[in-house]
């Protein structure tokens, strides 16, 4: 046995492309499935959540304005970098979710493959959801899906990596930007994922990850006027109705998935891509 003492990592937030501690200075202990201490995670505050929304809004113009091909390449790059850190993720998922290494490995593989799946959608979704509208008049009318804007994602509580990737990648694929509240008890794979995002050409601010107490952060995001959509996935059951009600204050799009987590290894459909786009219809007269 080596007598070398390992250098352990300080897990921080991911905001606007940087890795700050919570402005509140708070942390909370994260343990493995058996209760053994793993790390202290930053416990994000209301101010952190608001900073995250500002960062996501600032990043929206550039990310939504990038070509779909470019977004596809960036998302594919995320998969490439993930692949290179497969072992690290496997260890973190195994520890956090209490699954055997082999199972953890297959979950990580599925997460990598999911990035690839969504990466390929960036430049196809407009073909599938858009249309040239055969209107009854001398006009050319076409409809295209456009990103909704800033999406607040309450990430799944159980599936710390595959679940997270499954809810985050579709937001990015359509060109929206995200503020994610990670799994409260299992936040470590999410933080490591932010290191992958930071080194994969995903512009700073496109994804912002908050660790902490979901029930504390979610209400601020649900009522925030600069958030356009809300994924209730990881919301505590007793808060879901309140969050949905407060989202109505600015007519947010709310993704009301069932309280029980689905089997994330199932093949996804395009419903999550549909959830984060707005259809824009453009008209122009035809004539000589």
């Amino acid at each position: 046995m080596s007598d070398r003492v390992t250098v352990s990592k300080t897990y921080k937030l991911y905001l606007g492309g940087a890795f700050p501690r919570s402005e509140s200075g708070r942390t909370y202990p994260v343990t493995d499935s058996r209760g053994k201490f793993l790390a202290n995670a930053a416990q994000a505050s209301r101010k952190d959540a608001r900073d995250a929304v500002v960062a996501a809004r600032s990043a929206f113009g550039k990310w939504s304005g990038a070509t779909a091909y470019n977004r596809g390449q960036v998302l594919y790059r995320v998969a490439e970098v993930l692949e290179g850190r497969r072992d690290q993720f496997t260890a973190e998922v195994a520890a956090g979710e209490g699954v055997p290494t082999k199972r953890a490995q297959s979950l990580v593989d599925a997460a990598i493959d999911r990035w690839v799946w969504y990466a390929g959608w960036t430049d196809k979704i407009a073909t599938v959801l858009g249309a040239a509208n055969p209107v009854a008049g001398p006009y050319f009318s076409f409809s295209v899906p456009e990103p909704t804007g800033v999406v607040a994602v309450l990430a799944p509580q159980q599936s710390s990596l595959l679940g997270l990737v499954s809810v985050l990648a579709p937001v990015l694929a359509v060109g929206s930007t995200a503020v994610v509240v990670t799994s409260q008890e299992r936040p470590l794979p999410a933080i490591t994922l932010s290191e992958v995002l930071a080194t994969s050409d995903v512009p700073g601010g496109v994804v912002n990850l908050l660790t902490g107490h979901t029930a504390e952060l979610a209400p601020w995001l649900a009522s925030h006027a600069d958030v356009n959509a809300l994924d209730l996935g990881g919301a505590p059951a007793e808060l879901r109705t309140d969050l949905e009600r407060s989202a109505a204050g600015t007519v947010k799009r709310v993704l009301r998935n069932p309280a029980a987590e689905p089997d994330w290894t199932n093949r996804p459909d395009i419903s999550r891509l549909r959830a984060y786009v707005e259809t824009k219809t453009v008209w122009h007269p035809m004539g000589v």
Binding site: Y139, W283, P285
Partner: peptide, 10 residues
Amino acid sequence: TFNRFDPAAP
């Protein structure tokens, strides 16, 4: 143009 509506156009 302005205020054009058609059932085929979302």
